Structures are given as structure tokens and as C-alpha cells.
Amino acid sequence: MKVGFIGTGSMGSLLIDSFIHLGALQPKQILVSNRSPEKALLLAERHPGLSVCSCNSETASESDLIFLCIKPLEFKAVIDEIQSSLRPEQIAISITSPVQLIHLESSLPCKVAKIIPSITNKTGGGATLCMYGSRIKEEDRQLIESLLSYISRPVEILESHTRITSDFSSCGPAFLSLFVEKWIDAAVELTGADRGTLNTLAGEMLLGTGKLLTEEGFSPEQLQERVAVPGGITAQALRLLNGHLNGLFYQLIQTTHDKYDEDLVKLDAAFGFTINRPRY
């Protein structure tokens, strides 16, 4: 099987590195092309055997699966470039969240799917969100999820929930990292504790908490109840946090959806669609 990647920026290169390092693909199975050839050539140096194609059309025509790792407003131009190079039996997989399956199916002759990866996939952890077009068959779905399972837990979602689920799976690591950063900053300033030690402790805490939520069946509420003794230190600190965080996450969701909707309107226009979509 040949797997192509059009776009080798931050997430495209992360997927390629992860698939190779975690044993999903060998470099000789991978073809890449990029607007800046230097980035693609660096990947080829890092992974001997990986093929750098001269153009996106070559990557598309020579691949069985093609990952489209492109920024939203560059998408239509790339689709126009590769559509005549694709065949019905191939599978094109977008990783760009505002790009809709209807955009892809209206423009490409092949099967289409959409995934949302996460930086956590670099470790073989986290989730990859999966959505499938109408031409995808069960064996195609199994092929895609088998590949993704090397680097993540594939989770099928409704396309209408792309943005909110991405807030957790893809944006979540950055949100939690900001919380941890501010917490560590205050701890170092107030107590003089070693930053490196606190960073390690926070990382191990997040790792263990994730396992409690996913492997041990705890809900967030149950976990708080188990840790917080009534009248104790944790319970008092939770009251403080709850008071200050009240309403914040409504604003967070509104902020991420506003940006998503802005890109979606531009993409609908680029692909010639006029659709009145629900807000959430």
C-alpha cells in the first residue's frame, strides 16, 4: 500500500513521523509533496526511502490513501490541482476540520474521509476523530482505522460535532498545558520549588488522571469525590476553582466555534455552497 501526504507542515510531518516510528508504515510506502520542497526533503533525509514527489498531482496519482494536510483557505486550489489525477478506488483523507465531506465529495471522484489528529498521537496516545463520506465501504473504514490505531484510538463522530470534539481531542493538550504552566509559575514564585520537578509531577499526574478516566471508568465528578475529603484542602481548593471558572468554558466554546464558522463560510463560498448550518 502506498500512502501519500500532500502538505508536510506541523501536523502532516507529525503523522508521517508517528506512522513510521510506531510501525504503521515503512518509509518506502510513503510519498510526499509540499508547497515548500525544503520541508519535504528534510523528511526524506530523516526517513531514508521516503519519496518526494515533484507535484501534488504525482502524489495523488501514485497513492492508495492520500492525506490532505492543508490549511483551510489553501484547500480549494489543491483540490482543483489533484482532482483529475484521482481514481474511484482511491481514498482521500482530509485532516482539516472546517473542510466538509460534502466539499470533498462534490469535487473529487474518489472515496473521501475526514480525520482530526492530535499532537498526542506522537506518543501513540490520544484519539483521532473519524468521519466518513458516502462512498466509503466497511473495508475502507477498517483499513483507515487499522492504520490510525497504531498511533491513537480512532473514534467515529458526527461531522456536525467536529468542532466541539476537536476542542477536547486536539486543542485540549494546549488548554491543559496553559493551566499547568500558570499553576507551575505561581508555585515557583510563591515557594521556590524546582520548575523541572513540578513539570515532571504535573505530567505524571495528567498521565495517571487520563488512565483513571479511560481505563478505570471514573467520571470527572467521581474522581473529584475520591480525591477531595469533605472539609479538606482539596475540597476547599476545588470551591475556589469552581468559582473562578464559572462561565469560562462557555466563552471558550464560543471562541473556537466563531473561528471555525468563519473558515467554514469561506470554504462554502470557495466550493460554491450556500448552506444555512446550525450553530452547534
Score class of each variant (00 low, 15 high):
179 F>W: 14
85 S>A: 15
108 L>V: 08
72 P>V: 11
221 E>T: 04
22 L>A: 00
73 L>C: 02
12 G>D: 06
27 P>M: 05
142 Q>D: 10
143 L>I: 13
59 T>E: 04
83 Q>D: 14
101 L>C: 04
211 K>N: 02
64 D>H: 12
49 G>K: 14
233 I>K: 05
5 F>I: 04
200 T>M: 10
26 Q>Y: 02
136 I>N: 08
93 I>D: 00
29 Q>G: 01
94 S>G: 02
42 L>Q: 11
4 G>F: 00
233 I>S: 09
7 G>R: 00
164 I>G: 07
21 H>P: 01
157 I>P: 11
162 T>D: 13
152 S>F: 00
209 T>N: 02
226 R>S: 06
36 S>P: 10
31 L>Q: 07
223 L>D: 01
163 R>K: 12
175 F>T: 10
36 S>C: 07
12 G>I: 08
83 Q>E: 14
195 R>I: 02
42 L>A: 08
52 V>L: 04
195 R>D: 05
226 R>G: 00
14 L>R: 07
181 E>V: 11
102 I>P: 06
172 G>F: 14
48 P>I: 04
219 S>R: 06
126 G>L: 03
268 D>S: 13
246 N>I: 01
168 F>K: 10
271 F>K: 10
72 P>E: 09
158 L>Q: 15
219 S>T: 11
22 L>P: 00
19 F>G: 00
157 I>F: 15
251 Q>P: 00
179 F>A: 13
16 I>R: 00
182 K>P: 12
88 P>D: 14
60 A>V: 05
272 G>N: 07
34 N>R: 07
127 A>Y: 13
159 E>N: 15
151 I>A: 01
20 I>P: 00
272 G>T: 07
49 G>W: 13
113 A>Q: 14
12 G>W: 11
51 S>G: 06
223 L>E: 02
64 D>Q: 08
4 G>V: 05
240 L>R: 08
13 S>E: 06
81 E>Y: 08
145 E>F: 12
203 G>M: 01
235 A>D: 00
280 Y>L: 14
103 H>A: 04
122 K>Q: 15
141 R>C: 04
117 P>R: 05
23 G>K: 03
66 I>D: 02
96 T>W: 07
14 L>C: 05
183 W>S: 12
111 K>Y: 09
256 T>H: 01
54 S>L: 13
226 R>N: 02
112 V>F: 03
214 T>M: 04
130 C>D: 12
252 L>E: 13
20 I>G: 01
260 Y>I: 02
172 G>C: 13
131 M>C: 14
85 S>P: 08
80 D>M: 03
34 N>D: 15
116 I>G: 05
57 S>N: 05
170 S>I: 02
271 F>P: 05
126 G>I: 04
39 K>C: 04
225 E>Y: 03
21 H>T: 05
139 E>D: 11
